[in-house]
Design a protein around this nucleic acid. Structure first.
Lengths: 208, 208
DNA sequence: GCTCTTTCGCTACGAGTCGTAGCGTATCTG
DNA sequence: CAGATACGCTACGACTCGTAGCGAAAGAGC
C-alpha cells in the first residue's frame, strides 16, 4: 500500500512526488529480477527510475527497507472468495497464490527478502506482519465460510482451530512456494486439483 | 560431496589443498550467514579462510558456483529409514529436513541460492539436480517401504505414482521450508505430528 | 635425491560503486 | 509573495572488485 517512506514529512514545503515513489519501486523490482540482490545498485535503480541517486538515499535508509516496500506494494490483490464449497475455495486460494508468485520480479524480490530475513530478526518480523499474516487471513476466512456452510464440524477448541489454520496455511503457501520458487515448475489447474485432493483426503490407498 | 572445483587439475605438479577447500567452503557459509549475499565479499571469505584471495578466483569462476558448492557439501546426510510404519517414516523424514534447515548458515545459503536461481535457469537446474532430486529419493523410498509393508495399495499406474511422489515431496519440503525459512518458527516434534496427521488423514471434521 | 610442474601467498593495479555533502532550483503551503 | 521542503546535479574519499605478475612452497615422477 505504497508505504509512505519513513520520513516524517511535515506538510509544509514541497511534498514528495508520489510518481517518483512508484517509479522507484517498480525500478527496484525490475533491477532485482535482472541483477539480483548482490548486483542491486542504488545508482542503477535511480537511473532507471529517472531520479537522482540522492532522492533514494533520502527516503530509504537501507536496501532492506527499499526492497521490502517494493515487494509489499505488489501483494495486496489477494481476495477472499466464497465459491460455495471448501474444495473450490481452496483451489481458488492456491490459484491466487500461484498467480502472485508467477512474476519473475516477485520471485526474485521475495526470495531475496526471505534470505535477508534469516540474518535480521526485525526484518523477519516485518515480513511476517506485512506479507505472511495478511495472507493467512484468506485461509481463516475460507475455513469460517466452510463452517458456515456446514462442511466442517464446529470448533470445540479455539486454540486447536487456530493451530490448524496455521498449519494449513503453511502447507498451502509452502508447497506452492517450493514448486514455483525453488523448483521453478509451473502450477497448473490440474496440479492445483491434485494438491487440493491430497489436502482434503487421506493419502491415496492409505489404510489408517 | 566436495565437488572438486571445476579445474582440470592434471595430476602433475602440486595438488590443490583439500584443507583449503574445506576452509573456504566453511568460511563462505559463515560469511553468508553474517553479511548476506550482497555483502558476501570474496576478499573477506579468503581472509576468514586463511587463504589468498587469488586462490579463490583460481577455483571458482563466480559467486554462484562457490555458494552452490558451499551448500551442496552440507546436504549429504539425509538417510532413508524404515521405522516400521508409514507415519513414523514420514515423521522421521520431516525431522531430518527440519534439522537440516535449522542451521542459520544453511538457511541463508539456501535462500540466497534459490533467489539467484530465479534469474539463472542453469543454476536452477543445478539446484534441482543437486539438492531437490536427491531429497525426493527419501519420499520415493519411504513410499516403496510402505507398500512392501502392505500399508498402501499397489500402484496400478506408474506415472500417477510418480506424480504423487512429486506432490508429496513438494508438500513436505515446502511446508517445512516455509515455516523455518520464511516465518522463522520452530519445527517441534508436536508440530511434526500434527503435520503428518494432516497429510495422512482428511481435513479434520471434513465430510467428503 | 633431483627436477619438473602446478599451486600458493603476496603485492600492486585500474575500474567501478559506495554513501554523503553542498548547492542552486523547483514546487507546494499558508 | 514568503517560507519551507524536495529535487537534481556534481564532487568527494573510501572501499571492493577482479586481474596480473612475481618468488616460494609442495607434491609427482623418474
Amino acid at each position: 500500500m505504497a508505504t509512505p517512506p519513513p520520513a516524517p514529512h511535515r506538510a509544509k514545503g514541497r511534498p514528495r512526488s508520489a510518481t517518483a515513489d512508484r517509479a522507484i519501486l517498480a525500478a527496484t523490482r525490475e533491477a532485482l529480477a535482472e541483477v539480483g540482490w548482490g548486483g542491486l545498485s542504488i545508482g542503477q535503480v535511480a537511473l532507471r527510475a529517472g531520479v537522482a541517486k540522492t532522492t533514494l538515499y533520502r527516503r530509504w535508509p537501507s536496501k532492506n527497507e527499499l526492497v521490502m516496500d517494493a515487494v509489499a506494494t505488489q501483494l495486496e490483490e489477494l481476495e477472499v472468495t466464497d465459491l460455495g464449497s471448501l474444495r473450490a475455495d481452496i483451489e481458488d486460494v492456491v490459484g491466487q497464490f500461484a498467480a502472485l508468485l508467477s512474476r519473475p520480479e516477485t520471485q526474485a524480490a521475495l526470495l531475496a527478502l526471505f534470505a535477508e530475513g534469516t540474518r535480521d530478526a526485525q526484518l523477519r518480523k516485518r515480513i511476517r506482519e506485512t506479507i505472511v499474516d495478511p495472507q493467512k487471513r484468506l485461509v481463516r476466512q475460507g475455513r469460517a465460510n466452510a463452517q458456515a456452510r456446514g462442511e466442517l464440524d464446529p470448533d470445540r477448541d479455539e486454540a486447536a482451530a487456530a493451530e490448524e489454520i496455521d498449519i494449513i496455511f503453511d502447507t498451502i503457501a509452502g508447497t506452492v512456494e517450493h514448486r514455483m520458487l525453488v523448483s521453478g515448475e509451473p502450477v497448473t489447474p490440474e496440479w492445483i486439483s491434485r494438491f487440493t485432493t491430497l489436502l482434503l483426503n487421506p493419502l491415496p490407498g492409505f489404510r489408517a
